[in-house]
Simulated scan of single mutants.
Amino acid sequence: MRMKSLAIIAALALSTAIAGCSTIGGQMFSNDYGAVTDAGYQLPRIPIEKVPSKYHRQEVSYDSKEKPGTIIVDTQNKFLYFVEGDGRAIRYGIGVGREGFEWHGTAHIAIKREWPTWTPPSQMIKRQPELAKFAGGMDPGLKNPLGARAMYLFNKGGDMGYRLHGSPEWNSIGKAMSSGCIRLMNQDVIDLYNRAEVGAKVIVL
């Protein structure tokens, strides 16, 4: 009887491991980066095997006094945490602002948009005149720098100009390359978008 019980326990452990790769904190979602059809757009598969595993979406142990639904951005380590509560969070790999474009502070999500239009700020157009053709906005699509989703960050002064957004440049995750926005892989930003609510607090460390 005891041998039978041990066999059942072993089988359950094996099935759990197969269902989702586990990490010290919880589940990894490395299998969630396949091709996706979304709102008529065909997002290509991300070659996730080329992305360091620490940047794969995963549930982790994370102690925070912030309430569930809060987003905490660790720019130094290139992680974004969606606080679940009870010492848990969903962690995403991110790309952050390059040298000279770093920032920190507290904001909130004021607007959420699926397949957003991208309008480069006037300062960006001054730095990169070739972007002037998009002064009226770049249509949504697979090459749009905001990717499949964007969440617009506001503070007491209004629109900060910063976004949490998707990116077709999956190889920029874990790097400092943006103009201050926080970028995620498209499959990850869709997941975060579905979790985060308008009004959610965003803390950038």
Rank of each mutant, 00 (worst) to 15 (best):
M3H: 10
I111D: 09
K78L: 14
I109E: 00
L153R: 00
R88C: 02
D38Q: 11
L192W: 00
T117A: 02
F134P: 00
K67D: 13
G199T: 04
G20C: 12
G174H: 07
K50N: 12
Q27S: 12
D86L: 14
F134S: 01
S64H: 02
M160L: 14
P168K: 01
G69K: 00
D159N: 13
W115A: 08
Q27G: 02
R45W: 12
S179H: 14
I111V: 12
W170M: 05
K78M: 15
T70C: 07
V51D: 04
E169H: 13
H108G: 02
G87R: 09
G166T: 02
I18R: 01
D38L: 12
S64G: 09
A110N: 05
A200P: 04
L142D: 13
G25Y: 03
T23Q: 08
F154C: 00
E102K: 09
G97P: 03
D32S: 13
H56L: 10
Q76S: 15
G87S: 11
G136R: 07
Q76E: 15
D38S: 12
W103N: 06
A107N: 02
R45H: 13
Q187H: 12
Q128I: 11
A200T: 12
R163Y: 07
L184R: 05
L6E: 14
F79M: 12
S178H: 07
I94A: 05
F82T: 05
R195S: 10
L146I: 04
S167P: 03
E84L: 15
I203E: 03
G34M: 04
K112Q: 10
R183P: 06
M28C: 14
V51Q: 03
T119V: 13
A200L: 04
Y162M: 09
K50P: 06
E169A: 13
Y193D: 15
W170D: 10
P140T: 12
R98P: 01
K54E: 14
G199D: 10
D139L: 13
R113S: 12
P140A: 08
M1E: 14
G147T: 04
E102V: 06
R163S: 05
G180S: 08
A135K: 13
I94R: 00
R2Y: 13
R127G: 02
S61T: 11
A176P: 06
C181Q: 01
H56F: 11
D63K: 10
P140V: 10
K143G: 10
Y162V: 09
S15P: 04
Q123Y: 07
K67F: 06
